[in-house]
Design a protein around this nucleic acid. Sequence first.
DNA 1: CCTACAAGTTCCAGCCACTAGAGGATCAAG
DNA 2: CTTGATCCTCTAGTGGCTGGAACTTGTAGG
Lengths: 139, 139
Amino acid sequence: MRSIGQAAALTGLKQTTIRYYEEEGLIRPPQRTESGRRRYGEEDIKRLGFIRHARALGFELADIRSLIALSDRPDQSCIEANHIAQRHLDTIEQRLAQLSALKRELTLIARCCCGGVAAECRVIEALSDHGDCQAIHGA
Amino acid sequence: MRSIGQAAALTGLKQTTIRYYEEEGLIRPPQRTESGRRRYGEEDIKRLGFIRHARALGFELADIRSLIALSDRPDQSCIEANHIAQRHLDTIEQRLAQLSALKRELTLIARCCCGGVAAECRVIEALSDHGDCQAIHGA
DNA sequence: CCTACAAGTTCCAGCCACTAGAGGATCAAG
DNA sequence: CTTGATCCTCTAGTGGCTGGAACTTGTAGG
């Protein structure tokens, strides 16, 4: 059994984050010592690792909640899990496309700064006038 | 002079957002009618457009504040503006790299779902075990 | 046994950039 | 005068934590 500090060190999460996950019901409340300190078993550590990994992949807590529910009922079809992953993948792809559009425009804007005074600054000018900016505002 | 509704329609911002920007000091408080309704002039609309565009490019309000301050003192060097843009570009590039890494891993994970039961679900398994996941956790 | 000090506890506020909703006032048209 | 659109202020909520205050426990050394 580990303390919250050890759990944090093992999973790479912060103690406050672990407590937050408990509060949010993402992990079950761990055992406590007589004095009230949390004690985590191997299963708890595993689940924390799961959450950590899923968060690192950008899943939202709501999705993670669903994935956890799925893994707790191992007889169920995993189509749902795949669905969640697929949906997330779509989101990521959208964001990627958006971001590269941003990058393109921003590169253009940033490149034409010649170091003059702000009155002639292309950066500020380009930001003021979005006539030549396409399809960014659908963000 | 335009009402806040017109300003919103012209800039693509919501009324609440415009009021929020006012509260945050990103725009100066507009004139008011006798009854207290906001009236926006051309300059105000322009500035709102500026903010809108910068936000669409992903600049944070703090950066936008600096950019506005710069454009208000047109005699100053625009190196600062360029610096802000460059910094933002770096952030975007980092996020892009991160996102494509996520996409790669997630694609791998999602692909191996064969539609079986959750106990054998590769998606859940892959999330539990991040032994084969590289360098995502530096996010 | 006493003293530090590290590590844990709860609770509450703050972050960002809005957004939603309540509840009321005002405006323009018919 | 009524109706419905528009506007006003104020408060609270979003997600996913993070930080701090104020307190209690555990442990190691002297």
